[in-house]
Nucleic acid binder design. Structure first.
Lengths: 365, 365
DNA sequence: GCGCGATGCGGTAACGTTATCAGAGAGGTT
DNA sequence: AACCTCTCTGATAACGTTACCGCATCGCGC
């Protein structure tokens, strides 16, 4: 009776390597981790067997035994979203340098998926989580539970949320304020907002920045100039359609605004389409500003004035913050940091006709 | 001397639950997995303790012991890319229904990252991998190694690659052929291609479809009408700039094409910007067709004629194919499936002036 | 009264790795 | 000669879970 009834596809283990190299499993472990004392001779002998069998250490066993992992989870709302994309890329850059790998999960506007993704991260005992989704009640509760269990978590792009959790965000309020003030400085007095109904937009920092800028210059915020869907925005795909519809509404008013500030670039681009389809000239008949500085915004007709949030910096900062928490688990139990970065106004042709002459911003960089 | 010197943050285990519930760990396992025989009484008692301690089973230990996992890895080129986004979303839909979770990793054009991500998946003993990246030599070798080890893998969007691995793709060749034939049917005879230098584009199915359609109608493929960068395209961000530059080149020729087929929508959009900046009217002076049907393509001026590849179907098919391989590990060792789905031409204003009247395609759906 | 299947629960031994300790030899210092 | 410090290697025992086997008990049919 043959002894090897094993699967032919079974993965080699440290024990297999050890047997073939004529050493103890412990020595194999020391070689593959480059830790402890191993003579050059044995090291080489073991390495040869490792290469020959194409041995890959089992991360599950490693994590189980060592009680730590080098994986961090990133939770994003939906990929596609340029913000998530740039964020995730920069987070990964920083993590890779520190020897961590990262797995991404997306919620796709589903609270059920959000919970499932968070639990999957937790169950796999990731070293930490970066969360870039909008807040949900259930999600925040879960995050707090995880934090109590000692799992390092950093939130990105949130203004509020569980106070015990660290945060990195950009100053959306100030960015919106700057954009609206730019429109005001061009002489506009009738400025609309696209991105939500008067009721629904309330809590948004970008909307608040718009309102505050208007008030600071004694301009009227008219409810009929606040346009957009009642519900929360869906995934990226629908945003342009929402912007299109909102602009149609604004243009149908007897007294229309001469400028609009849109909650984000996709919405702004939809609004531009609507204006064009009605023969309304941009920026002469109506000026449009967006938010986010998505790559496409430089290629619209005319190029879109927008606000760039420092996505890359947010990603890098979040990653560094998380790493700090991981390396130094419990400095002060409830000491949560908050980092708020500046936004930057980018003036282009959708607000200023001969903008190229006036502003130094690059267009197709 | 107190016995509990344990970390205060330590996770509860089946043993902890078992002690508190006054049962054996095995019984706890049966309850949380809903397997085997457990009396209603004990089941409830255990469940109460599980809820009270907020017990989460350790996926590492589970996977290690049971030798299988319910996680599948998805490898995408870069998020941001609408194709990856839709693909990943649909893959996840199918997987979630079957009780699998998925983790995403991206390569960001880095072969080093590609290998690192694949190894991370493998080391964590995922149940399978969906690979949607462009082929690289090192990556393909690794994939073959994994396949030999019995790890189920499905490739998406590849025409070639290791023959032992299953594949799902769309018929890019036919899609390009249809788009170019559409241009020809409009009377165009001088049709350019944007998306790579004559030398670099050769292997691309989309380019081949363009050439074939031209030949089939006895039209000349001129090298000077093939425009684009020599190197492989970088991430999404640079595509519009590449399209812009390529179109500038085509427009500078003494004998210019009257229509162009662009390798993808972002490139086409960059080309449109260039045409507009030079006062060349679309579609009357030059007609432009793209590929991919990205959401923005319906909102350009004029809306872009493009080819939709069945991304959602590809994602769902890939997921189902992978699941089949997982459930039924070794039907025939080297039997790899290949599935090729059709593309669909979407005619819009960038090729036909009064397209809305002629075609039933929705614009802002 | 015996056999037999279904039910209910626990004990034991892994899965593959590494932390920890233990020991052995080499070299140097008091 | 006694003692310490490096260097090197191996044995053992976990990490948290579940597969597998074993032992009860119950009900039912002959």
């Amino acid at each position: 009776m043959p002894k090897r009834i094993r699967d032919k596809h079974r993965h080699p283990t440290v024990v297999d390597i050890a047997k073939l190299a004529g050493v103890a499993p412990m020595t194999v472990s020391r070689v593959i981790n480059d830790s402890g004392y191993v003579s050059a001779e044995l090291r080489e002998k073991v390495q040869r067997v490792v290469d020959k069998l194409e041995y890959h250490p089992n991360a599950l066993a490693r994590g189980l035994k060592s009680q730590r992992s080098h994986v961090i989870g990133i939770l994003a709302p939906d990929i596609q979203n340029p913000f998530s994309a740039e964020l995730a890329g920069n987070i990964q850059d920083v993590l890779l340098e520190s020897g961590y790998t990262s797995f991404l999960s997306t919620t796709e506007q589903s609270s059920k998926r959000e919970l499932a993704a968070l639990r999957a991260f937790f169950d796999h005992r990731v070293a930490g989580i970066v969360v870039a989704t909008r807040e949900t009640e259930a999600g925040d509760e879960e995050l707090e539970r995880f934090t109590r269990r000692g799992l390092p978590i950093v939130l990105v792009g949130r203004s509020s949320g569980p106070s015990s959790i660290s945060r990195v965000t950009a100053d959306h309020w100030k960015g919106a304020y700057d954009a609206v003030e730019h429109l005001i400085s061009l002489g506009h007095k009738h400025i609309g907002y696209i991105g939500g109904s008067p009721g629904a937009a309330g809590r948004l920092r970008r909307f608040q920045g718009y309102c505050e800028a208007m008030r600071a210059h004694s301009l009227e915020v008219r409810d009929e100039w606040i346009a957009g869907p009642d519900a929360e925005f869906g995934p990226g795909y629908s945003r342009q359609a929402d912007g299109y519809a909102a602009m149609e509404h604004l243009l149908s008013l007897t007294e229309r605004p001469t400028a609009v500030f849109a909650r984000n670039d996709f919405t702004a681009m939809g609004a531009m389409s609507a204006a064009r389809d009605r023969g309304v000239a941009i920026p002469n008949d109506i000026a449009i500003a967006g938010f986010d500085n998505v790559p496409q915004s430089a290629f619209t007709t005319p190029p879109l004035t927008t606000v760039a949030q420092s996505t890359a910096e947010q990603g890098r900062a979040a990653a560094r913050m998380l790493l700090a928490r991981i390396e130094n688990p419990a400095p002060a139990p409830a000491e949560s940091e908050t980092l708020c970065l500046d936004c930057r106004l980018i003036v282009r042709g959708s607000t200023v006709a001969n903008w190229k002459a006036k502003h130094a911003e690059t267009t197709h960089a």
